[in-house]
Design a protein around this nucleic acid. Structure first.
Lengths: 212, 212
DNA sequence: TTTTATACATACAGTCGTGTATGTATAGTG
DNA sequence: CACTATACATACACGACTGTATGTATAAAA
C-alpha cells in the first residue's frame, strides 16, 4: 500500500466515516476506539490520523456529512413539492412525512439518527452534538412557524392562533414518535402513526390553540 | 478510617450512588471513571469495589434506586388521587402531570432523566438501560390502556375507539415534550404545555381515533 | 477478651487506547 | 528525470483506567 491519488484519498476519508458510522452504531461512540474504526474500514490508525484529528473530529465530520446530505435531499423535495400549488399546511405536512420516511427507509439516515438518540452522550465536553441537536430542533420549529405564518396570511388559520404553543405541540409529537419508534420499532408503524398524528393536529389547529 | 457499622456502610453505599449520579450527569456515563465517583464521594476505589462490581453495576443500582423511589412516590399519589372519585381519564391526566411535575421540580429525578436521555449510550453491551427504557415505556402505555379501557366501560369513550393508536399518540406527545424540554428547558414551560397537550388530546379523544 | 469478619484504604500489575514519530511507496511537479 | 509532498502503515512512548491483592482498624461474635 502506498500513496494514492487525491480521489483515492477522498474515498478513504469517506470509507473511514462510513466505518465510524457502523461502529458507532454497533458499540456506541464512547466504546469505539480509533482502531475499531480503522479496522472496520480495512485501514490502520495511520490513515485515520491523516484524515482526522481524533474521535471528536470524525464524529463531527459524520454529523456534518449527514446534515449536508439531508439538507440537499430536503431541498430537492422542496422544489418538487413547492412546484404544485398547495396550501402551506399541506406542504408542511408533506415535508415532515418526507423526513420521517427518509429516516425510516434510508438505512444511513436511520443509523445516524439512532446514533444521535441512543448511541452517544450529550455533554459539555462532547460537543458539537448538543448544539447540533438544538439547531436541528430550531430549524424544525422555524419551518413550522413559517408554514403557520403564511397559513395565517392566507386566511387558512385564524389571526389569534397561539403559534408558539402549536409549534411545541407538533414538534413534541413528531420528535416523540420518532424517539419511541427508534427505541421500539416493532411497537407501531412510524409513517402511518405520524401521518395520523399530523392530520389530527392540523384538523384541530383552527379551533384549538387560540389565544384567550 | 476503618470499619464502620452496618448503617454506616449502607450510608457510604448511598453516597457512592449519589456521587455517581452527579458525575454521570456532569461528564456522561462513559467518560466517568470509578475514581471520579470515589473522589466525588470523598472515598477511594477500595470503597467502591467493596459495594459494587464495576461501573455497570453502580449504574444499574442507580437506576434501580430511582425506579423504586419513583414507583413508591407514584403509589402514594395513586392512593390520594384514587380516593376521590373522578373518571379514569382525569385520573390518567393527573398522574401524567404528576410525573411530569416530579421530573421538572425534583432535582434528583430530573438529573436521572437527563442521564437517561442525554448522558448514556444505549447499546447491547451496556444493558440494562435499553431494557429499562422499554419497560418504562410499556408501563406507561399499560397505564394508558387501563385508563382507556375503564373509560370505555364507563361509557365515557365510544366502543370503537382505536386504543392502540391513541396510546401511541399520547405517549409520543408526552415523551417528546419531555425530551425536548430536557434538551432545551428555556424553550417552553413543560408543565403548562404538557397539560395543554393532554387536555386537547382527551378532548378530541371521543371524536377521533375511531376505527373505520 | 480474643477472634473474626467487615468496611474500607493502599499498592500493584496489566491492559488498552491515544498521540506522535518515523518509515515508505508513489503521485504529482518542475 | 530527479525531487518533493502526499497518503498512508508501522513503531513507540506515555498515561489512564481497571481489577485484584494486600494492609488495617474496628464492629461484632464467640
Amino acid at each position: 500500500m502506498a500513496r494514492r491519488t487525491k480521489e483515492d484519498a477522498q474515498k478513504t476519508r469517506e470509507q473511514l466515516i462510513d466505518a465510524a458510522e457502523m461502529v458507532f452504531h454497533r458499540k456506541g461512540v464512547a466504546q469505539t476506539s480509533l482502531n475499531d474504526i480503522a479496522q472496520e474500514a480495512q485501514l490502520t490508525r495511520g490513515a485515520f490520523y491523516w484524515h482526522f484529528k481524533n474521535k471528536q473530529d470524525i464524529f463531527k465530520a459524520m454529523l456534518d456529512r449527514q446534515t449536508r446530505s439531508f439538507k440537499q435531499t430536503i431541498q430537492q423535495m422542496d422544489r418538487v413539492t413547492g412546484a404544485d400549488q398547495q396550501d402551506s399546511l399541506t406542504r408542511l405536512r408533506d415535508s415532515i412525512l418526507f423526513v420521517i420516511n427518509e429516516i425510516e427507509c434510508n438505512p444511513n439516515r436511520r443509523r445516524v439518527y439512532e446514533i444521535i438518540f441512543q448511541k452517544c452522550e450529550i455533554t459539555a465536553q462532547s460537543e458539537p452534538i448538543g448544539t447540533l441537536l438544538k439547531e436541528n430542533a430550531l430549524i424544525g420549529s422555524a419551518r413550522m412557524r413559517k408554514a403557520f405564518d403564511t397559513a395565517m396570511q392566507d386566511q387558512i388559520l385564524p389571526e389569534n392562533l397561539d403559534i408558539d404553543s402549536a409549534i411545541v405541540h407538533l414538534q413534541a409529537q413528531v420528535t416523540g414518535a420518532l424517539y419511541l419508534w427508534l427505541l421500539m420499532p416493532e411497537s407501531f408503524e412510524l409513517k402511518i402513526q405520524t401521518a395520523h398524528l399530523i392530520d389530527l393536529f392540523l384538523a384541530q389547529l383552527p379551533d384549538q390553540f387560540l389565544i384567550r
